[in-house]
Design a binder for these strands. Structure first.
Lengths: 255, 255
DNA sequence: CGATGGCGTGAACAGCGTTCACTGTCAATT
DNA sequence: AATTGACAGTGAACGCTGTTCACGCCATCG
């Protein structure tokens, strides 16, 4: 957006490449004249939202845009860069505004839940986020939003950094295992597979796995929201106590 | 191991496929007659340890075993199954013995650190672990080892399950972002890139990212061990307080 | 009106996971 | 002891992936 904008023929190249233009999912009312980096990223986002991250292929993305695969490389240097742009586009959906009058624990909790909800809506993107150094503008905005309450709460730089990473590590790491979409294998966690899972736990040798056998079916349920809430609450509670009580934490590195 | 064991020719098929057998990395002193599922998985593990997870390719794995790619499919149904076996092979290295006389917080802390150390030694495997339902024998052993102290400490089933997943979510999620090995791009976090990162933070607009500008360089350092220790301590501390104080945790699901 | 530069095309390349007919060799059977 | 059958590994192929590049087309600028 902002660069000099080419002209507007009725439909660019409609005579030459007739069929692709009409087979493509051009359901929008607006005429889509030419490709843009923003349009590429936007289509990648809806593709991921619909079919998951492993469906994001240069070829299928190009097909959805009514374009030959190589054309994408005019707007994106590589698939890796496209993924970086996708990550930043997803993080743009996180609302970074929090009431700074609230205690920092509340602010961080709200931000973490917002981040989780956004990542949950784009399955697989968290996996990209953890493999990259996220330095896009919206990634930075999220970082700033999380770091600011910690700083204002009086955390010294080092401890603020630790708390910051601990919170992001947990939130992103939690979302890396998003609910599987792949329907080809029965990976979807429906009632049937849950029953088979419970049978599996009952069938385990009780001498080797006593706790798993007795607790298994009470534990392996898909209560992702509850799990995240419990985790983030424990985490922030622990951070708060570490702030007040023992700023130098003991080290358990060996063993 | 256990099935009827074929014969032992001096070198199986050495006349037909002469060169491959000698070009293969047969540095071991033992004669390697034929393929085994265990040998395939073992070679995959050393390949991952040496070159990272993205170097694990059916073709290169076959080449290292002195074998044509299709031959692997006699011992492994698919690459996905191979990855599952790799995950379980890695988790076999986790020592699951803990002194059950210690407080549960100590036991869990030790286990979490051991798990982290093992995963750190096999970069990329944590990423597989979070995308699978780990039901191999060694995965189950780790689960049992973590769950048992919680159970013995009096956690009711539901709360034990929550604590269990919270600890594993954090530990595995933390390890998903292992230090990059890929040297082709300058992803390795050396001193030079750290300096460039600090310059980057100083160059940010201070009106948009005030906290990042002031705290940036004190925060983005590669203190992974310290970060993990701080996180797991805060987490377990928070879980301990939740156990004693408010067993019913408030819910922050909306917003 | 002609030159220019950017964008999409079409085709190709290397590499990936996976399949399959075939072959050689061992182990058990007759 | 000779025959049979099972099976591991071969070689080649299929369809897919990301990526590159010479080639035209077209809008714009001079």
């Amino acid at each position: 957006m902002g660069q000099p904008q080419r002209g507007t023929p009725a439909r660019r190249g409609a005579a030459a490449t007739h069929s692709l233009w009409f087979n493509a999912p051009e359901t929008d009312e607006q005429i889509r004249r030419t490709l843009t980096r923003d349009r590429v990223v936007a289509e990648a986002l809806t593709l991921i939202a619909q079919q998951g991250i492993e469906a994001l292929t240069m070829r299928t993305l190009a097909a959805r845009l009514g374009v030959v695969p190589g054309a994408l490389y005019r707007h994106v240097r590589s698939k890796e860069q496209l993924q970086d742009l996708v990550v930043d586009g997803v993080l743009a959906e996180v609302d970074c505004n929090v009431n700074s009058a609230l205690p920092w624990t509340e602010q961080i909790t709200v931000l973490a839940h917002r981040l989780r909800n956004v990542l949950e809506a784009h399955p697989g993107v968290a996996g990209l986020l953890k493999t990259r150094d996220p330095l896009g503008p919206h990634s930075l905005a999220v970082a700033e939003a999380v770091l600011r309450p910690l700083h204002n709460a009086g955390f010294p730089p080092h401890e603020a950094g630790l708390a910051f990473f601990v919170i992001l590590d947990y939130t992103l790491g939690f979302e890396v295992s998003s609910p599987r979409i792949s329907v080809n294998e029965q990976r979807v966690q429906d009632a049937a597979t849950r029953t088979r899972l419970h049978e599996f736990f009952r069938s385990l040798p009780p001498d080797l796995f006593p706790t798993l056998v007795t607790l298994g079916e009470h534990i392996w349920l898909d209560n992702r929201a509850q799990r995240f809430t419990a985790g983030i609450n424990a985490l922030i509670d622990g951070l708060q106590r570490a702030q007040h009580h023992h700023p130098a934490d003991q080290c358990h590195d060996q063993l």
